[in-house]
Simulated assay, not measured.
Amino acid sequence: MAPIRKKKDKLQQLSAKNVKKKSIIKESVSQASNVRFNKDFGQHILKNPLVITSMVEKAALRPTDVVLEIGPGTGNLTMKLLEKCKQVVACEVDPRLVAELRKRVQPTAYSQNLNIIVGDVIKAELPFFDLCVANIPYQISSPLIFKLLLHRPLFRCAIIMFQREFALRLVAKPGEKHYCRLSVNTQILAKVDHIMKIGKNNFKPPPKVDSSVVRIEPINPPPKIDYNQWDGLVRICFSRKLKMLRAIFKGNKIADMLEKNYKTYCATQNKTVDDSLNFKQYIEDILVECKLADKRARTLDLDDFLNLLLAFNSKGIYFA
């Protein structure tokens, strides 16, 4: 009976080790399993340690880096970042998760390296940071992108998880299905690359959509354009992205708005407006001169939009 008892004891020891190992892993991916996540805040906690490790590796952190994290949740990504950088600035809107994060970091050697901003990141004044690494609430994706890209001084790069479709729009090229105003407005300010796809089961609770991680590297120095003018032009071009530009700019609402802007510009420059000017024809002549009158927005690249903006501005037509 002794060999049977020894075998049984060994199996029990192995089982106990496995249970202990599983409990350690479970603890490492979620220290706040008793927290009820608020879907109104887009709280889907990234629980897969392999995905977290991969995001941190892709960021290529330096020991001197200050890292901005948005929506740290229970701190799974935060803890990995703290191991690699000088400081993590974590922006969290939910006071319950702020308390959980502080509780998790306080007993560690990194407690002095965490700075928590409590509030809405879109409204908050962000401090200096070298990188942004985050699994963000997806409903703030678009305003957050431009808040980051217009932040000064420029950061080195961002590794951010987005909803899959949003990520595809960020990286889309002219002529592709997802190419849109977001693609153009982002790519004029940054180099954007799709890094990896993330399935919904890597989150707790699982979202309804799959996700993707994107690398965003601001163009430094940024292009010397008036971003409000740029966005005004791009917004018009993509208002009917399947139509030719000639047809879009002939629309009464758009033509009237641009004519009003033109007259305002002339007034500020003490220029007389010719009452006989056919403004729609004036616009079309500019489009023809740029060889873009019969083009559609979904096929234009950044140089096309830049040339069009310059051509309009040189003729006294502004978009903001």
Rank of each mutant, 00 (worst) to 15 (best):
I219S: 04
S183L: 15
I188N: 03
A190F: 08
L170P: 00
M196D: 13
V171W: 11
A172Q: 06
N201G: 02
D226Y: 01
F162Y: 14
L148H: 05
N228S: 06
C157Q: 14
V213D: 09
A172R: 08
P153E: 14
I216T: 05
Y227M: 09
F166N: 05
L182V: 14
P174Q: 04
P218A: 07
A190N: 08
L170T: 03
P222C: 08
K177L: 11
L189V: 12
P153V: 10
G199T: 10
R181W: 11
E165G: 02
R152N: 09
S211M: 13
R215T: 02
S212N: 10
F203S: 01
E165F: 15
Y227Q: 09
F166S: 02
M161D: 05
T186L: 15
I225P: 01
F166E: 03
K191P: 02
F203W: 13
V214K: 05
F166L: 00
W230S: 03
M196W: 06
V213I: 14
A158H: 05
E176A: 01
L150E: 09
L189D: 05
G232T: 10
Q187E: 10
D210C: 05
L168F: 14
L189T: 04
V209M: 13
I160P: 00
P222L: 15
F203M: 04
F155A: 01
K197N: 14
K177T: 09
N201F: 14
W230C: 00
E176P: 01
D210H: 03
K177I: 11
I216R: 03
P205V: 12
D193N: 10
M161W: 06
R181Q: 12
R156L: 15
K200W: 09
P222T: 02
R169S: 08
I216F: 06
L182G: 00
L148N: 01
K200A: 14
K173Y: 13
C157M: 11
E165H: 00
F166H: 01
A167C: 04
K200V: 10
L182D: 00
L149R: 01
I195R: 00
C180Y: 03
H194N: 09
K197D: 15
K147P: 00
K197F: 11
P222I: 12
F162T: 08
R215K: 15
Y227T: 09
N201L: 10
N220M: 06
P174V: 10
L182F: 04
F155C: 02
K208V: 02
A167W: 01
L154M: 08
K204A: 15
Q229R: 03
D210E: 15
G175A: 09
P223N: 09
H151Q: 12
C180P: 01
P153G: 13
R156D: 15
K224A: 15
I219K: 11
V209E: 08
M161G: 07
D193Y: 05
S183Y: 11
K177A: 07
L182A: 08
Y227K: 07
I188H: 07
K208R: 12
Y227I: 14
P207W: 13
M161E: 10
V192A: 03
D231P: 01
K224E: 15
E165K: 00
T186Y: 10
E217T: 15
I159E: 06
F155Q: 05
N201W: 11
P218E: 14
K200F: 05
V184Y: 06
P206K: 04
V209Q: 09
R152K: 13
L168S: 02
